[in-house]
């Protein structure tokens, strides 16, 4: 009898395990289909209000947009906006920290309701998430040591250029500048360390962010201020979540009307960017 029991348990376990294997195998095939069509799981404005919390994906290591100060509080340009959105929804914000390359998955796996993580609108991303009205504009810039400044893209041919995975800088150079070797990193921390350790000739990222960085790094300069088309940064929701998308569009419009973004710029971004950048270079009127 005992022997039989053990066998039965083992068989059950085996079936469960193989099922898990099969399912995980299917994952990649099915995911396209389900992200495009299904809206189940994503929370409408009503559900968010009922729940009492909105889950927002933010950066934790990207001053001045989304970072954590020494008191352990999340602060930054995106965070001010996030708290305001939560306040206007009359719910509590719950922040989920993401990296550049898991912003899309966090939304699609329904880990968050809204992404406010310096998320640049691109045609590729539009296929997989829904962007609301933009609240910021940027373009890609290239930073290099002052001793060996890079001022033209042609100088980068055959050299290493440092980027963070999943950023617009990576996309732009992959698609349009194939002669440049890309050295890709997972986080902002890693990419700047790599530049300081001379692992590449230069580093490409959003220009506003690079201005902020060089302000306190006298040995480096933004040699190429703007490359590629102008790009917009917008809140993103899960595809098909019309309710939250419409609400967010309305919210951005009314915040623009009352000058919220200029105030947000002056309190969060200005101390970082210095005089080189004007509010109208960044915010959208």
């Amino acid at each position: 009898m005992k022997k039989f029991g053990v066998k039965k348990f083992a068989l059950f376990f085996g079936i469960t395990a193989s099922l898990a294997l099969v399912l995980s195998g299917c994952g990649s095939n099915k995911s396209n289909h389900s992200t495009a069509s299904s809206t189940n799981g994503s929370s409408t404005v009503q559900q968010i209000k009922k729940r009492g919390t909105i889950r927002i994906a933010v950066f934790g290591d990207l001053p001045p947009y989304g970072w954590v100060n020494k008191q352990g509080q999340r602060v930054g340009y995106d965070l001010t906006l996030a708290r305001r959105i939560a306040k206007d929804l009359k719910v509590k914000p719950k922040f989920v920290q993401v990296n550049a390359n898991n912003r899309v998955d966090a939304l699609n796996a329904n880990k968050v309701d809204l992404v406010l993580a310096n998320f640049t609108v691109t045609p590729e991303r539009k296929q997989v998430v829904a962007f609301a009205s933009p609240y910021m504009k940027v373009s890609v810039g290239v930073v290099s040591p002052k001793a060996k400044p890079v001022t033209k893209v042609t100088q980068l041919q055959g050299k290493n250029l440092i980027v963070t995975k999943g950023t617009t800088a990576e996309n732009y150079f992959t698609a349009k500048q194939s002669k440049v070797n890309l050295l890709k990193f997972d986080s902002k921390t890693q990419q700047f360390n790599a530049l300081k350790n001379n692992r590449g000739a230069a580093l490409a990222d959003d220009n506003s962010y690079l201005y902020a960085w060089v302000k306190d790094q006298p040995k480096y300069t933004v040699g190429i201020k703007s490359i590629g088309p102008k790009q917009y940064i917008a809140p993103a929701v899960k595809k098909g979540n019309k309710s939250l998308l419409n609400w967010t569009n309305q919210e951005v419009k009314s915040l623009n009307g009352e000058g919220f973004f200029e105030k947000d710029y002056n309190s969060q971004l200005k101390p970082y960017f210095g005089k080189e950048v004007k509010p109208q270079d960044i915010i959208i009127k």
């Binding site: 083992a10 376990f13 085996g14 395990a17 193989s18 294997l21 399912l23 995980s24 299917c26 994952g27 990649s28 099915k30 995911s31 389900s34 992200t35 898991n102 998955d105 966090a106 699609n108 796996a109 329904n110 880990k111």
Partner: peptide, 28 residues
Amino acid sequence: VLRLYLEFFRITPTVVLLFLFYYILPRQ
């Protein structure tokens, strides 16, 4: 079956495993 179970978890890098569990399985 148990051998397959072992090999699956031993071969899959932990990063991939976490990604699978956190982002892909919930969707499916």
